[in-house]
Design a protein around this nucleic acid. Structure first.
Lengths: 195, 195
DNA sequence: CCTACCGATCGGTAGG
DNA sequence: CCTACCGATCGGTAGG
C-alpha cells in the first residue's frame, strides 16, 4: 500500500509529543516515561533519538526562535511603513500562538528550565529580536504614525496581549483564526474606547 | 529591644518564600528542601506549618483569587460607567501584577499543578470573575462607549497584555509604577495607531 | 524544630 | 528497540 502521509522522523514525533506534554503539564512535571508512552516506546528507547531531556526543550525553543528571527528579516527587508511592519509582525505572533501553540507555549513559558549555555543562547536571540522590533516602533514614533510614549512598554504589552491564544485557541478551534486576527490587531491599533 | 516590624507568622513566611521560588523555578521544579533553605529550617520542619506542598500552591491561588473577587464586588457596587469600571479593573490588574508579582505569577502560571478538588474550585472562581468582567464590557458595547466586536477576545487580550509585568517589573523597580499604569491603560484604551 | 529515614520515582546507562 | 537496573533525589513520616 502506498503511504499517503509524508513520513516524519521519530525524532520529529518525539519533539511534537513533548511540546504537547510540556504545554499541558510543564517541562519539570513531564517525565520521560510520560513521553515514551505517547510516542509508543519504552523510556530507554527515547535515548536512541535524543541526548537528554533538556535537548528536547532546547531544540523546541531555538527552532521557534529561528522562525521568528527569519520572519523579522523578511519583513524588515520590505519598504513597508513602520506601522505596517508592526501590523505584519503582530499578525505573525497571532498566527504562531494560535496555530503552532504547543511550540509557542513551550518557548514562552518553559525556556527558563534551560541550563547554560543554551539558556544564554536563547535569551540572546530573543533580545536581538526584541531590539529589532523596538527599532521599528521607534521609527513609527519618529514619523508620527505611532502614538506611544515608551516603545518598550508598548512592545511588551502588545506581545503579551497575544499570548492567551496559546492556552486558549487550541481548545476553541471553532473560532475562525482570521476573525481572531483582525479583532486583536484592531484592538491593539485603535484601543477599545470609542472616541 | 522593641520589635519595630509587625511579626509575620511562620506560615506567612513560608507562603511568601514559596511564591518567590515558584515564580523563579516553577512549582514542580521547586523542592521542599529549596523552600526549607530559604525559610531557614530543615525540610521536615515545614510540615509543622503546612499539610503538604500542594497546600501552599492552593492557598496562594485562592487568596489572590479572593482579592480579585472582592475588588470586583466593590467596583461593581459603584455607579461608574462601564468604561470607567473597565479602567478601574485594568488598573487593579496592573497594580497586582507589578506590586505583588510573585503571587500573580504563581496564580497565573502554576494553577494547573493543582489537583482536584482545588483545581475546580479555583477555575470556578476565575470563571465567575471573568463573567462579571464580560458583563461590564458588554454593557459598554451596548451604551456605545466601547468599540469591540467580541467581548471575550477583548477581555482576554487586555488581561493577557498586562501579565508581562509579573516577570519584568520586579527586575526593573526603577520604573515608576504610576507611569507604567497610565501608559498601559492609554494603549489599551486608544491603541498605538495615531488617527 | 531536628535527626533519621522511608518508599517511590526520576533521568539516564549497560548490554544485547 | 527492549530488559534490567542504577544512583540520586523527591515529598513526606516517625519519634523525640
Amino acid at each position: 500500500m502506498g503511504q499517503s502521509k509524508p513520513k516524519k522522523s521519530k525524532k520529529q514525533i518525539i519533539l511534537e509529543e513533548a511540546a504537547t506534554l510540556f504545554r499541558e503539564k510543564g517541562y519539570a512535571a513531564t517525565t520521560m516515561r510520560d513521553l515514551a508512552a505517547k510516542v509508543g516506546v519504552e523510556a530507554a528507547s527515547l535515548y536512541n533519538h535524543i541526548k537528554c531531556k533538556e535537548e528536547i526543550l532546547s531544540q523546541i525553543c531555538s527552532s521557534l526562535a529561528d522562525t521568528y528571527t527569519s520572519k523579522m528579516v523578511l519583513i524588515n527587508a520590505t519598504d513597508a511603513t513602520p506601522i505596517d511592519k508592526i501590523k505584519e509582525l503582530l499578525l505573525l505572533h497571532v498566527e504562531i500562538n494560535a496555530m503552532s501553540s504547543p511550540l509557542a507555549s513551550v518557548m514562552n513559558d518553559e525556556w527558563r528550565h534551560l541550563t547554560e549555555p543554551e539558556r544564554s543562547d536563547f535569551l540572546l536571540k530573543r533580545r536581538s529580536y526584541e531590539n529589532q522590533f523596538l527599532n521599528i516602533i521607534e521609527q513609527g514614533i519618529a514619523d508620527g504614525s505611532v502614538q506611544a510614549t515608551d516603545a518598550k512598554i508598548a512592545l511588551y504589552t502588545m506581545l503579551s496581549s497575544i499570548r492567551w491564544l496559546q492556552h486558549w485557541y487550541h481548545a476553541n478551534r471553532d473560532m475562525d483564526v482570521e476573525a481572531v486576527k483582525s479583532t486583536i490587531i484592531g484592538l491593539l491599533m485603535n484601543g477599545i474606547q470609542k472616541s
